[in-house]
Write a protein that binds this DNA or RNA. Sequence first.
DNA 1: CAGCATCCCCACGGATACTG
DNA 2: CAGTATCCGTGGGGATGCTG
Lengths: 137, 137
Amino acid sequence: MGTFPDLRKFGGADAFLRACKPRVAIELLSDKWSMLVLGALLFGPRRFGELRRMLDGITPKMLTRTLRSLERDGLLTRTVYPTVPMRVEYALTDLGESAAGMLAVITTWGAEHAEEILAARRAYDARPPAGETPVPA
Amino acid sequence: MGTFPDLRKFGGADAFLRACKPRVAIELLSDKWSMLVLGALLFGPRRFGELRRMLDGITPKMLTRTLRSLERDGLLTRTVYPTVPMRVEYALTDLGESAAGMLAVITTWGAEHAEEILAARRAYDARPPAGETPVPA
DNA sequence: CAGCATCCCCACGGATACTG
DNA sequence: CAGTATCCGTGGGGATGCTG
């Protein structure tokens, strides 16, 4: 069928149904802020406020929730320095770095095909309401 | 920092803020069913009912919505055969196949790291409520 | 067969205000 | 500084029933 890695090697579509292994990756990608946070941490360890400023538009609540979730999954570490004022630093783990690697793949794909997709979208939206049904046979 | 492709080449975190190009990929991934449908179509063109059966748990409404969205983005084609009873076939485009390639990357990553993540999750959940704060310096 | 229409729920996530 | 607490609107998506 194609030149891409054969999905069936990994279980194909079945691999995604129900609560199966690779689903964790999908959940990660599906979350609005997770990959953004990982991306931000690629620049090195960052503090709460720094991340907040890097991720324009994120609220403290969502940043906290996202960081907790990523920490729980072992994608980043949270280190508290009990200074005054307090200081907390977040850093990617190896696992987190590899997850960010996925982000790179996705970003690349998106950058390469965005124009094509947007063009298809325009064409679709511009086509006649009641249409000629493409009838090959 | 790592061995993965350098995100900054693509604009880094900034590349994701607001409505920028690579975001279309994220939207694709974020949708609950889109990548599953693409994965199913990797096995070849399929009819509505076939897809419905392959994607256990999907409702007709969501299948329709997902297919329409993917068609609009040029990831698959929809061909109507006006037979009796009616027959509609969905097939990946080249663009759709390349998108499914992303799925392979993600699936692989998920399969390789799922156990690690689940272990981290168990460890996190099992740790003492009020905790020893890791104080390096 | 391949959908479309409708109702409805609740979880995601934003805004705002407060605390150790 | 680094969060927590609370309220609340939106819409994603399930269930059900009907149609060309």
